[in-house]
Design a protein around this nucleic acid. Sequence first.
DNA 1: GCGACAG
DNA 2: ATCTTGTCGC
Length: 247
Amino acid sequence: MRTLDTIMTTVRIPEDWPTTEAEARAVQDELRDRVVLDEPGPPPGTGRVTGVDVAYDDERGVVAAAAVVLDAATLAVVARATAVGRVSFPYVPGLLAFREIPTVLAALEALHLDPGLVVCDGYGLAHPRRFGLASHLGVLTGLPTIGVAKNPFTFAYVEPAAPRGSTAPLLAGADEVGRAVRTQAGVKPVFVSVGHRVSLDTACAHTLALAPKHRVPESTRRADALCREALKEAVARPGARSPEYGN
DNA sequence: GCGACAG
DNA sequence: ATCTTGTCGC
């Protein structure tokens, strides 16, 4: 048995990618009703779960994404892919998807296998316009997606009880837009929301199953480590993959 | 108008 | 996200 290969690719930002905040918000308003909310989603502990994450070198305008596929039952790594490109949008709260999606899409496509449930680092429905990164990625790919964030963003939440597995609503006014999930006893919860084609209960169950030893899901931890590696490599050896990172 | 604000 | 040393703990 040899080391698992990592597929590496580069990104080209679409010609019609939004340039201004107004354009980006318009895209969100146009795509938001394509989110599917009436499917339960894949059962936890079966099939595949894929973590995606992105790392940046804003000085050089370089971005790297990683997609790591896990066996949902064992959490063993099944496949990995990375993509490197140029930053496509500045960080603007509420518009994170426009900064992360081109590179994440390239990494997912490079996988050449069904990713199963995609776990994003950020939010889905818990978003000012109910269309965060996870929902956006779901609509673009048709894949079931969820968002697991490390911070409550602008939302209010009730502190979950101390035991692992405790949950409490994440609130936008009176609406439960997500859930605070305690993945480790006595440790700050993570904030789970529905992306696309998955129920909130299923999203929370997957999150708990993916975090048996750490606060953050194993999928996200693996993707985080891999995209950082890819970014280092890309900055150290520009053009090693293809000229100008594809752009 | 001012501050807060996923990554 | 990223900048950053040492340090306590499994």
